[in-house]
Amino acid sequence: MAETIGSIIILAGAFFHFSAGVGLLRMPDTYTRIQAGTKASTLGNILVLAGLGFYHPDWALKLLVVAYFVLLTNPLSSHALSRAAHAIRIPMAPSTVVDALTERNAARAEKSGSS
């Protein structure tokens, strides 16, 4: 019984991973792709780990720690990627409505240029 529940949870996790992959292909620009990859794969990972916990109840605490590591590191890597992408001016999708970061950078450059 526990194994059936575990399998279903792992399958749900796999579905989120698959959706992350589809999101990577379908989203219009780098930044939105990073977003799709980050979120869906985080929940997918946690669900797979939780499902594994049903198979091996004695691993539960270790799996919890692994889940926390995923939660800590996944957003960091997506932040680093998107920040680097913006720093080398990878273009944003045409549907983009506002870019406060470029405005900030422009204002900062102007300030240092005038002083």
Partner: peptide, 21 residues
């Protein structure tokens, strides 16, 4: 995640991304 699924599987991705402060 549910939000993201809605965007990902929509027939036409209708989003207005941007960077806000």
């Amino acid at each position: 995640n549910l939000n993201m699924l809605r965007y990902v599987y929509a027939p036409r991705i209708d989003i207005h991304p941007g960077i806000v402060k």
